[in-house]
Design a protein around this nucleic acid. Structure first.
Length: 115
DNA sequence: CGAATGACAATGT
DNA sequence: TACATTGCCATTC
C-alpha cells in the first residue's frame, strides 16, 4: 500500500458519522493539497470491498460527485441515514456538516454578516 | 519509464 | 450564481 493511499484511507475512516468531508480536505490532510482527484480515485478503487465510508466524501461544492446515478442516490440515502439532509437529492450543507479535524466540537460559522 | 486517466479544485466569464 | 476551462498529481496501462 502506497503511503499516500494509506493516509487517505485512514483519514476517510477517521471521518465521524453525521459529518462530511471534501476531497480537497482529505487530500490536504493526506499531504497533497492538490491531490483531490487521487482521493476520488482511491474511493472508487478501495470502496469496492473495503470498510471505507465513501458516502461521507463529497466535492468542494458539497455535492455528490459520483457519475453513476444509482450509486449517487445510494450515497444520498446513506447520508440521510447518518442524519445529513441531502438538498435537491444531491447537495448537503457543507457549512453545517463539514468535518473539522481537531475542532469537532466547534460550531457556528462567521458567515457574510461579519463585514 | 512515458502517456493517459480521473467519485476534484480553483479561477474566469 | 452558474457554466466553462485549466491546473494537478498519484495511480494505471
Amino acid at each position: 500500500m502506497e503511503p499516500f493511499t494509506e493516509k487517505v484511507v485512514r483519514l476517510l475512516k477517521a471521518v465521524p458519522p453525521g459529518r462530511i468531508a471534501t476531497y480537497g480536505q482529505i487530500a490536504r490532510l493526506a499531504g497533497s493539497p492538490r491531490g483531490a482527484r487521487q482521493v476520488a480515485r482511491i474511493l472508487h478503487s478501495m470502496s469496492r470491498s473495503h470498510g471505507i465510508p465513501w458516502q461521507r466524501i463529497v466535492n468542494a461544492k458539497g455535492e455528490i460527485a459520483i457519475a453513476d446515478p444509482d450509486t449517487a442516490r445510494a450515497q444520498a440515502d446513506l447520508l440521510e441515514a447518518e442524519g445529513i439532509p441531502v438538498l435537491g437529492g444531491k447537495r448537503v450543507d457543507l457549512r453545517t456538516y463539514r468535518w473539522d479535524p481537531g475542532f469537532e466540537g466547534e460550531e457556528e460559522t462567521p458567515g457574510p454578516g461579519s463585514l
